[in-house]
Design a protein around this nucleic acid. Sequence first.
DNA 1: CGAAAGACCTGTGCGC
DNA 2: TGCGCACAGGTCTTTC
Length: 297
Amino acid sequence: MPELPEVEVVRRGLESWVAGRTVAAAEVLHPRAVRRNAGDLPAQLKGRTPASAERRGKYLWLPLRDGGPAEGPGEEEPGEALVAHLGMSGQLLVVDPLSPIEKHLRVRMGFTDGGPELRFVDQRTFGHLLVAPMTSGPARPVPEPIAHIAPDPLEAAFDDERFAERLRLRRTGIKRALLDQSLISGVGNIYADEALWRARLHWARPTETLTRPKIAELLAEVRAVMTEALEQGGTSFDSLYVNVNGESGYFDRSLAVYGRRDEPCRRCGTPIRREAFMNRSSYSCPKCQPRPRNARP
DNA sequence: CGAAAGACCTGTGCGC
DNA sequence: TGCGCACAGGTCTTTC
């Protein structure tokens, strides 16, 4: 469930609660949580200090400095980062080290200041943590394993023109393209449906039939719905998605179509429909978003 | 290279 | 009460 706004909420929490603190010890309680990591995660983290909290799309990372929290002058090496993806149900929680162990606790990390520890809790185990080198070069440094992900639409590096060009070269449906993280990152099933409703586009609309102005409108709606969700702390349907303090956002009250099967469209009152799509659900308004004749699954 | 399908996971809720 | 099953769905891998 966590998409860009939810991950950004978590990033802000990490920035204020974890950055600048030195790792005393880390413990992996479930091997699947570190399946993409190349080494021994506790050894890689011990004695290192997350300098900040960064994000691209749904990926988070904490650039790692050696040694203590003191900020040193001089050239910064490309270095390494602790990378996190929350998957479907991952949570990064900042909690008292003595608080009870969560049922699905996968990784925990204590700090030398003896303060709150960082816990990675993940019921469905699609999320993971890893330590990885950063890319070097003129572009924004990102962890190497996520270098294939496109910038997200709230990033300065996102290129609207390039997105429009690549989108029109695709031969697929617009929603499939929105969910392709190598084209645009950070969009998941919920915000794809919401942005398509706002732009009055059916999910199966062939990408090559979209005009430049329509693509610009869709991008504007993607940004608008994500920004609004962020202002409300994100979307949550159950207790699975929470910020680092365990609190849920409340953007779900503002959703126009997602999860609203048979409820009236907020624009025209027509009952919202649910359709199967890519082994998941698509919600749309039959009147505002008519299915195109040349629909593409 | 791109498009699409399959695999990976566990808890919840429903019908029978 | 309990069983089987659909569903939730992001991303990596495989196949064509």
